Computed example of a mutant assay.
Amino acid sequence: MADNNENTAAPAAAGEGATDPAQAPAFGIAGQYVRDLSFENPNAPASLVPGTTNPASNVNINVQVKKQADDAYAVEIGLNVKTERDGKVLYAVELVYGGLFRTRNIPENQLGALLMVEAPRLIFPFARQVLAQTIQGGGFPPLMLEPVDFLALYRRNLAAAADKANPDGTAAGEAKPTVN
Rank of each mutant, 00 (worst) to 15 (best):
M1N: 05
D3L: 12
N5K: 14
E6H: 12
T8V: 11
A10Q: 15
A10L: 14
P11S: 08
A12Y: 03
A14V: 12
A14T: 14
A18L: 15
T19I: 13
T19R: 04
D20M: 01
P21Q: 09
P21W: 07
A26R: 10
A26D: 09
A26Q: 12
A26S: 10
F27E: 00
F27R: 00
G28C: 02
I29L: 06
A30M: 11
G31E: 07
Q32G: 00
Y33H: 11
Y33R: 04
V34T: 11
R35A: 08
D36Q: 13
S38W: 10
S38E: 03
F39M: 14
E40T: 04
N41Y: 07
P42T: 10
N43Y: 10
A44P: 07
P45W: 05
L48H: 15
V49M: 12
V49D: 08
V49H: 13
G51V: 05
G51A: 12
G51Q: 14
G51M: 10
T53Y: 09
N54T: 06
P55V: 13
A56L: 13
N58P: 06
N58Q: 15
V59I: 15
V59F: 10
N60S: 12
N60W: 02
N62C: 03
N62F: 04
V63E: 00
K66Q: 15
K67Q: 14
K67H: 02
Q68H: 02
A69S: 15
D70T: 02
D70I: 01
D70E: 12
D71R: 01
Y73R: 00
A74Q: 03
V75P: 00
I77D: 04
I77L: 08
N80W: 00
V81H: 07
D86H: 03
D86S: 05
G87F: 01
K88V: 05
A92H: 01
V93Q: 04
L95S: 05
L95P: 06
V96Y: 08
Y97C: 00
L100F: 11
R102L: 11
T103A: 09
N105F: 01
I106K: 14
E108Y: 14
E108S: 14
N109K: 13
Q110S: 13
M116P: 06
V117H: 05
R121D: 03
L122Y: 08
F124V: 01
F126A: 06
A127C: 08
A127R: 04
R128C: 11
Q129Y: 03
V130L: 05
V130Q: 02
Q133D: 15
I135M: 05
Q136F: 12
G138M: 10
G138K: 03
F140A: 07
P141R: 13
M144E: 06
P147L: 03
D149R: 02
F150L: 02
A152F: 00
L153N: 00
N157I: 02
A159R: 02
A161Y: 09
D163S: 11
K164I: 08
K164V: 10
K164N: 11
N166Q: 07
P167S: 09
P167F: 08
P167R: 14
D168R: 12
A171S: 09
P177D: 01
T178W: 04
V179K: 07
N180K: 09
N180G: 14
